[in-house]
Amino acid sequence: MVEYDEQNRKMVLKLVYYGPALSGKTTNILQLHELITRKERGELMIMDTVGDRTMYFDLLPFFLMAPSGLKIKVKVYTVPGQVQHDSTRKAVLQRADGVAFIADSQLSQETINFESFENLEKNLSIVGLDIEKLPLVIQFNKRDLADICPEEEIRNDWQVTGIPFLMASALNGWGVLETFSKLAELTYDHIDRRYHLEAEHGLSREMFLLKLLPRESE
């Protein structure tokens, strides 16, 4: 649910990186922090961790300005993936405008991915979000490792769901921007329907992505 302050001409979007423990959610957000180094980016806030594992959430804010003067703030959150932090996940997931599900491509993690995805479905319904309507992308991370699920198999498993999926190696920095870009694109389409970003604020989807992500030249 978009946080929209009409008086101050400000809109806040919440994107959540979800997924099983150690699938690379924080790595994704760290890479985003590295790759997008523009002025309109806030500092990465990593909340307290225990043994380098996310305990609460990480937060990375971005800004952009629509031609109309509307300021759009995009806040990217991660959730803790460990099973025991389910209540925290639920709390962070509240009012999300889009979700990137970061799956671990390793063969040994297949079941854990499915369980985590089921957990996402369950928690979305608990916090009152419709998985059918919510912008959602899936990233298969850790493509650089050896024992991973073949892309062909992933396609067979996930294509039917209609959810866009991308391959990535967050540690090496590839696939990270693509995932974020795809999620931003879907989120734009979703909120444009309600807030008429293009019609009323002169902000097209291309412009939105261009402002949010670094240009080739940068």
Binding site: E3, D5, K10, V12, K14, F57, L59, K73, K75, Y77, K90, A91, V92, Q94, R95, V127, G128
Partner: peptide, 11 residues
């Protein structure tokens, strides 16, 4: 009621 306060709300 879990909608009372949203985590990370603008401050």
């Amino acid at each position: 009621d879990i909608t009372t306060e949203i985590i990370g709300e603008e401050k």
